[in-house]
Amino acid sequence: MMQEKNNRAELKEAILKAIDKNSKLTAKDLSLMLGATEEEVAAAVAEMEADSVICGYPTLINWDKTGNERVTALIEVKVTPQRGQGFDRIAERIYKFDEVESVYLMSGGFDLTVIIDGRSMREVANFVSSKLAPMEAVLSTATHFVLKKYKEHGIPLVGEIEDERMMITP
């Protein structure tokens, strides 16, 4: 029983490691790679989805290479924590906005990092001045615009990847 549980945990970890960088892998691919059956993989994935271990399968897009203009801003936010709820309540009020890409609670000089994805600088500025800054619990904001993205999710967005290896005598 214990063994079975361990195997299952190991399989889950192996699946997560594999799809962390490549969510296109199918249950069939994973079953071949990990030496489990397709059903076992599918069941483990379903369980992790239900447990919110796997929260989604987004695609890493380099928008700079498309005609689509995008602006990303990182906003340092100082807030007043609320009695009984700490930072969670104010964080929730912020992250519920669609423009908000990520929200992190920070240690150090400010409390929340809010990352905004907008179509233009004006849109981001509007969000900060009309939505974020006026919130009662928000004491101050400092907005930094991203100039260039070099790497996201462990994957470089610049430079070309080319196989430079040559066929030489084996």
Partner: peptide, 26 residues
Amino acid sequence: PSGIRKFFDIVSEMKDAISLGVGEPD
């Protein structure tokens, strides 16, 4: 001389070939 040389020459000239022939880490 390594008999495989000739074969490798063809491979290196074929631009769209997928190679599973290399003996070094990717």
